[in-house]
Computed example of a mutant assay.
Amino acid sequence: MSNKVEFKNVGKSFNGQPAVSNVNFLINDGQLVTLLGPSGCGKTTTLRMVAGLELPSEGSIFIGDDDVTRVSAAQRSVGMVFQSYALFPHMTVMDNVCYGLLANKVKKELAVILATEALDKVGMKQLVARHPSELSGGQQQRVAIARSLVTQPKVLLFDEPLSNLDAKLRRKVRQDIRDLQRDIGVTSVYVTHDQEEALAISDEIIVMEQGRIKQIGTPKALYNSPNSRFVADFIGDTNIVTCEALKLNDNGTTKLTLEGAEFEHSKRLVAKESYCLSIRPSAIRLFTANVGNSIKATVLSSSYLGGHKEYNLRTDAGQELFVVDHSFDDQLSEGAVVYATINGLGASVVDE
């Protein structure tokens, strides 16, 4: 049985104001797909429409082969993990996970068996007698996931599930969620505004802006080949600069130039025209001497962050570049003159 999720021309308006417009996507059975975008972009409204907590103003929603556009949330077989965990503080871990089953008239003995299995999957079987106040944030999140899994949903939804955790714990729990989702194979939709989080856990990412989808792709495809300035700027740090196409190569690539530095681009472009270029900060390498085919620049600011160094540069032509340097070279000082080369694999022509 397929548990895919599909949106066909879906829109949602509130008081005549569109929150989501003409949204189309397909999440295949067993995938984890993230809805990513800034606040107000429509990602949470889209998630709530999958859950049945909001009904679309137009279009159709399918879970598996079933049209659930007008089906209530209770009849959709969807589990949801909330940002706040939403655990009952006066109940034990076991009682929290059993609650939904008992509310659906499942016998107590069977509910305990199913809850134990769900808690075992998330590594919480040994803490069934504790209350939420006796658990860490990560442990509470695991209980919330177990409570959603115990009803054996077709689709599991995550609404900013890590926002209440500190940075170090976020990294651990997001990997736990990803490993668990892969082990169980449940189709999952994940909402976040954190680009790093989305890149780390997703099979595919749906980037949204102002209620519309800007681009859909794998984390690697979106990072390496964004189709617009918005996506390039939102999926990690980038430099947006103006370059010129020099010539077409015989293999279908294009030679670009940026202030004298030449590099290859994988797309076929019109020669002698200017383009908007996204360059990832780690695609720029700095030298203290002119190595040729490079851009001369001055270091405006320099920061040491342990595992890497960050620089803000101004080129001789007045363009500013942000550079992330993972080398073990000595840190460059402010005011230093440097020469920057570009790895074309980290550069993409984007729409304005």
Rank of each mutant, 00 (worst) to 15 (best):
S21K: 15
Q195A: 09
A74D: 13
A317R: 09
S39Q: 07
D203E: 14
K214G: 06
L110S: 06
R70V: 01
L248P: 00
D316H: 06
Q210V: 06
F234H: 04
P56D: 00
L114Y: 01
E6W: 06
K8C: 12
I113S: 09
E273H: 11
H326T: 14
A51N: 08
A73D: 06
N24E: 08
F328M: 10
R182T: 01
I235N: 04
L222Q: 02
A167N: 08
N28W: 00
V173H: 01
T298P: 08
I206W: 05
E109M: 05
L119A: 03
I240K: 03
T92R: 03
L246Y: 11
G346R: 01
A245K: 03
A74V: 13
D330V: 11
D29K: 10
N227E: 10
Q175S: 12
A336C: 01
V97N: 09
T187Y: 03
A317Y: 04
A271I: 01
D95I: 06
R147V: 06
A115G: 01
S228M: 13
T253S: 15
S327G: 10
L156Q: 00
M80K: 07
L101A: 11
T298C: 08
P161C: 14
M124E: 03
I279T: 03
V97P: 00
S84K: 15
D183Y: 01
K107N: 14
F88G: 04
G217T: 09
K105M: 04
K272R: 12
V291A: 08
V191G: 09
T151A: 13
Y339R: 00
S39I: 04
N28E: 14
I27E: 00
C276R: 13
L32G: 03
K43A: 14
Q215G: 04
V241E: 03
S266E: 15
A19L: 09
V93W: 05
E320H: 14
N104C: 07
V81S: 04
V150R: 05
K172R: 11
F263Y: 14
V299T: 12
N343Y: 01
R229V: 04
A347V: 00
V241R: 06
V81R: 09
V173P: 01
V78C: 13
L26K: 05
A221D: 15
K296L: 12
V106W: 00
A167P: 08
K247S: 04
E262I: 10
V93N: 02
S282G: 02
A198N: 12
A118H: 08
C276M: 14
H308W: 06
N312G: 10
A73V: 08
F25V: 06
A245I: 01
Y85N: 02
V143K: 02
T242H: 00
V323E: 10
L321V: 03
R182V: 03
H193R: 13
G138Y: 12
E352R: 08
V23K: 01
